[in-house]
Design a protein around this nucleic acid. Structure first.
Length: 587
RNA sequence: GUCCCUGUAGCUCAGUGGAUAGAGCGCUGGCCUCCGGAGCCAGAAGCGGCAGUUCGAGUCUGCCCAGGGACGCCA
């Protein structure tokens, strides 16, 4: 929020350097560390080192300290600041706390739910995420792509981008054929009623088990595959109908999780278009057709004249001429840019195991001369595993079903709400329980570096204490409770005279950082920064809550604090919304 | 064998090349006459190893060790 002040000081230091015949400095600004001191800081070590490199004989540490002193003297006390000091080579500029605090609070209250968001950039970005397989269960392992992608989309939106949210369900493939076979032979005529994806998954698991126990059944499955391949109307109709069951089930999940999509691409839509791209690659000698003895391949390293094994070889078509994942991905990338020609970036939130695959696909498209190829970017994330590094696999049934997790978390949260707040109507208690349970699940998926494994265990997943969403929600509820009891909104101007305590300054400071946290997290395509910052904010508010009574305080502190609580409540709400977490009115 | 990711407190994780490396869980001991104790306060405990770059390295580079993953017809 203080870019303008920072820029002014920055340019004045440049003036100072020019006057002193010093090299052009590169200044890095950051917040002054250590709580209770609110302001911005930069150091002079780089400048001193630059002088040393230019031949001047200086001790860098000493010289930096000296330069900081000189700069401090040159600046005096700029408007808006109450103190300037040089410490061990650092130049610290302390804000005029009361003025700035009021400015921050005023901005938050004026901008309301938009506080933190950046102006429209007029740039469009697509985020593809979730891509669940139809005819399989939706388990906790699928949660990370869904939630990470959703929050990245929210972050980019808040950072000023126009975001297209895309889903790419795997609606065809061997797993679907196996499912259809098992359905036809064992479950014909049945249909799911509740827990759709779980039911779909159970048929798939049964299919895998049957096949494992009786490998000779493979021929039956091949027969179904042939019928599919020949577009047998009965099979096509069954595929469409059962696929829709899965999609309905996903819709239920997404609604519950608060996730939405603007566009759906289907695996099955990309087969023919992909084969068309492959034909082009062959005709332009970019791909080698080794059929019928081998597949169609693109020898990437060879085409790039590279001797390393960086890109290796991409198989783009099976030897029997059928499409595989890579075939479809070539077409999908193209389709996205045809639908949205102005995409500045096309992002793929897909697990890290497919990193090489995406590098290969994007590089192939680049070699094929697609001008947008370098606008495609893979956002890798690590898996959610079970304790002992056991990957969740539908086929083996080693999964924690999303339905089960949500049910269990919600019922635990409900039990807690009922002891804490027995007078609330059951309906409200249930809403609160849902908000707490889903918030906790979301936060745990997002408060971790993308490239780190999340190990799922029930104890951690169902722990509502400590660094978790309920802590943040609780801070919000407390703020809300104070304001409810205060009645009126309070004065609309910061009362003069009262100075702010350290605790209050820390809180305002954290509030003021929100826009920058959004910017940084969006640039890094990672929600972690916002997730951590939000927890810090809640922590600062709890500290304030304990140290600074609001309702019983004398004026002008009472009014000041009420305003601060309002601003905090708004910022907590905005931060939670950015992570897709509901802020309940009571808990 | 080639490449990618990860090693920070007992455990799970933060940490923008800069000042004093921070949280949570767990453990120990405190705090409801006080705006809601899903909370607060206090305590113990840490950068895998060796070189290098730099005025300055948990952070960058190289090598080593340990764990995970990817490497021509799975997705």
């Amino acid at each position: 929020m203080f870019e303008q002040e920072q820029q002014e000081i920055d340019s004045r230091i440049r003036e100072f350097c020019a006057e002193q015949n010093l090299p052009e400095p590169t200044l890095q600004w950051s917040w002054i560390p250590f709580s209770g001191h609110w302001g911005i800081t930069t150091s002079f070590f780089q400048l001193a080192a630059q002088e040393a490199r230019l031949g001047k004989k200086v001790n860098v540490l000493q010289r930096a300290a000296e330069l900081a002193e000189l700069a401090a003297a040159y600046l005096g006390i700029p408007t808006g600041f109450e103190r300037v000091e040089a410490v061990k080579g650092y130049l610290n500029l302390y804000f005029d706390s009361t003025d700035y605090a009021w400015r921050v609070i005023e901005a938050v209250l004026q901008e309301g739910e938009n506080f933190g968001c950046h102006p429209r950039l007029k740039k469009r970005v697509m985020v593809e995420f979730s891509h669940p397989n139809t005819h399989k269960a939706f388990h906790v392992g699928h949660l990370r792509s869904a939630i990470l992608g959703d929050v990245v989309a929210r972050l980019l939106q808040a950072a000023g981008y126009d975001v297209v949210r895309a889903n790419y369900p795997g609606d065809i493939g061997l797993h679907v054929i196996k499912w259809l076979w098992n359905y036809l032979t064992r479950h014909a005529g049945e249909r799911p009623t509740r827990d759709i994806t779980q039911w779909m998954g159970s048929i798939y698991i049964e299919a895998s088990r049957r096949l494992e126990e009786n490998p000779e059944l493979e021929s039956e499955i091949r027969a179904v595959y042939t019928r599919w391949d020949q577009r047998d109307p009965e099979i096509i109709r069954l595929w469409q109908e059962t696929r829709q069951w899965s999609l309905d089930g996903f819709k239920e999940m997404y609604d519950m999780l608060g996730i939405s999509f603007d566009v759906y691409y289907f695996n099955s839509m990309m087969e023919d278009a992909g084969k068309e791209v492959v034909r082009e690659l062959i005709s332009r000698n970019l791909a080698q057709d080794e059929r019928p003895d081998g597949p169609v391949i693109v020898k990437l390293d060879e085409l790039l004249g590279s001797k390393s094994e960086k890109y290796r070889v991409l198989v783009v078509l099976r030897s029997d001429g059928t499409a595989l994942y890579a075939t479809e991905d070539l077409a999908l990338a193209e389709r996205k840019f045809r639908d949205y020609p102005d995409l500045e970036r096309s992002l793929y939130v897909v697990d890290v195991r497919q990193s090489l695959h995406f590098q290969q696909v994007f590089k192939t498209l680049e070699i094929a001369g697609r001008p947008w190829a370098n606008r495609c970017q893979h956002i890798p994330y690590e898996l959610v595993t079970l304790p002992g590094s056991v990957a969740m696999a539908s086929r083996e049934g080693t999964v924690v079903l999303l339905e089960d997790l949500i049910r269990e978390a919600t019922s635990r949260a409900l039990a807690i709400v009922q002891t804490k707040n027995p007078d609330l109507p059951l309906e409200v208690q249930e809403d609160v329980a849902k908000a707490v349970a889903l918030g906790a699940i979301r936060y745990s998926m997002v408060a971790r570096e993308n490239t780190k494994v999340v190990t799922f265990d029930w104890e951690t997943a169902l722990n509502f204490e400590g660094q978790a969403a309920p802590y943040i929600q609780y801070a919000y509820v407390r703020a809300n409770s104070i304001l409810r009891k205060a009645g009126s909104a309070g004065p609309d101007k910061m009362p003069s005279g009262g100075s702010l305590s350290e605790t209050e300054i820390v809180l305002v400071d954290l509030i003021s950082r929100f826009p920058r946290e959004i910017e940084r997290s969006a640039a890094e395509l990672s929600p972690l920064g916002v997730a951590n910052w939000l927890f810090d904010l809640a922590q600062a508010f709890n500290d304030f809550y304990n140290k600074c009574p609001v309702l019983t305080a004398d004026e002008p502190a009472r009014s000041t604090r009420l305003q601060l609580v309002m601003a905090t409540r708004q910022t907590l709400a905005n931060g939670l919304a950015l992570l897709g977490i509901t802020a309940p009115q009571a808990m």
